[in-house]
């Protein structure tokens, strides 16, 4: 009998030292029944991608409050592609201006959640991709 679980990596790229939001999301996704791995603070894009590959996650959720999302988020999408792991779905959250969102999506970030998003929206997003990730 097969028993597939959705696995999600929550990553904190760059030099941003605030992870209350990331921890909140990690905990809430655990409570929603997913297996969640958290990287801890101050990760390079490369270490997030290596972790995503080793942990064979279905999603990478990036949390960023420093303002560097326009360079770091697409960089991670690109590195996943370089490592033949473009099937891993990337989403992001944090203090991200509305104006930046279309461009991030164009560069392969599937969804962006801004402050105040109810956790249900994040879970709905993940569930909407369940078939796509084969779980």
């Amino acid at each position: 009998m097969s028993d597939k679980k959705i696995r999600i990596l929550i990553g904190k790229p760059g030099l941003d030292g605030h992870d209350r939001g990331a921890k909140y999301i990690a905990r809430a996704l655990k409570d929603a029944g997913y297996e969640v791995i958290y990287t801890g603070l101050r990760q390079t894009p490369q270490s997030i991608v290596n972790t995503a590959i080793q942990e064979d996650v279905d999603f990478v959720g990036l949390s960023l409050l420093s303002g560097a999302h326009n360079s770091l988020f697409p960089k991670i999408v690109e590195l996943l592609k370089e490592n033949d792991a473009e099937d891993i779905i990337v989403f992001g959250g944090g203090v991200i201006p509305e104006d930046d969102i279309p461009n991030l999506k164009k560069q392969g970030v599937e969804e962006i959640f801004t402050p105040g998003t109810p956790i249900k929206d994040v879970v709905d997003f993940i569930e909407s991709k369940r078939e796509k990730v084969g779980k």
Partner: peptide, 11 residues
Amino acid sequence: FSGGALLGDRI
């Protein structure tokens, strides 16, 4: 309860 897990050793 949920079957989920928070895998934190890796940090």
